[in-house]
């Protein structure tokens, strides 16, 4: 296996090195890549879309079709994890574990014993010992809202600064995952059910594709936001700017939901119990 690996690696490396002498120097401003197509985007982008961040303009408008499938890729990944891992039948175990919330004491109840189900003071847990750290809990409780706020800012400010739907969505998802890590999966399920996450991920991508379909219905080509102008009551350039914002929100929703869904399924191996 090692010999095979070495041969393959050397072949691929050799192939990549073979082209190297004809590479333009790194950072060469007159290389074909810098002179053929990209000047158009830089010079026209802001005028066409009111988005000074050219990357956003290209990503969400000129090459919006690519980005739609990018959102579809991440959606499929989330769905794939659900499809592969989710188990619906509950394991019936002989012994069950409960934690007494005020004291943090773990109760072990043998089969046939009386469970404190329904009591406010007890919660079911899965592993024998779950650390309960007040400092971590409190810190995360404080940080999470600010991370979420920042995520919203990143989504909304994608036209003017680095950011956009993907980055903001990942941040928002990270905030929820942080909460899940500091508490446990069950406490997240109480706030954000699996069903809701699934729904949000599909709705997010639907917003994107749906915007494209609306453009199509209004007489333009797919994803040509200028045709939204009449509906939004603005001129064509502003309509493109708004169109970008709409699809960024859709992407943000989808990415957030998928990040959470990936965490739900990977951390609990699809059982949706307490998780890590």
């Amino acid at each position: 296996m090692r010999a095979l690996a070495l041969i393959t690696v050397l072949m691929v490396g050799g192939l990549l090195f073979y082209g190297l002498p004809d590479f333009p120097d790194w950072g060469d401003p007159v290389s074909p890549a810098s002179t053929h197509l990209s000047p158009f985007y830089i010079e026209q982008g802001a005028a066409d879309t009111h988005a000074p961040n050219v990357v956003t303009a290209v990503l969400a408008y000129y090459r919006g079709y690519d980005t739609m499938f990018e959102a579809a890729v991440i959606f499929s990944a989330g769905l794939a994890c659900f499809f592969l891992l989710r188990t619906f039948q509950q394991k019936s175990e002989e012994t069950r574990l409960y934690r007494h919330i005020p004291t943090g004491v773990t109760l072990r109840i043998e089969e046939g014993g009386k469970t404190p189900a329904g009591s406010e003071e007890f919660e079911p847990i899965d592993s024998h010992w779950v650390p309960y750290d007040m400092i971590i809990n409190m810190t995360c409780r404080l940080i999470v809202p600010f991370v979420q706020l920042f995520a919203l800012y990143v989504i909304a400010h994608g036209h003017y600064s680095p950011g956009g739907g993907f980055q903001g969505g990942v941040l928002f998802g990270a905030a929820i995952i942080l909460f899940a890590i500091s508490h446990d999966l069950r406490s997240v399920f109480r706030r954000l059910q699996e069903k809701a996450v699934m729904f949000l991920s599909a709705v997010g991508v639907l917003i994107y594709a749906g915007t494209g379909v609306v453009c199509l219905v209004l007489g333009g080509n797919f994803l040509d936001y200028s045709f939204l102008a009449g509906m939004l009551g603005v001129d064509a350039v502003m309509a493109r700017s708004h169109g970008i914002l709409i699809i960024e929100i859709g992407v943000g929703l989808a990415v957030m939901a998928v990040m959470v869904m990936l965490y739900y399924n990977l951390s609990s191996a699809g059982r949706h119990d307490e998780g890590l």
């Binding site: 919006g64 333009g220 797919f222 994803l223 040509d224």
Partner: peptide, 8 residues
């Protein structure tokens, strides 16, 4: 797509 001719 988006009404832009290639290569844009």
């Amino acid at each position: 797509m988006a009404g832009w001719e290639p290569p844009v």
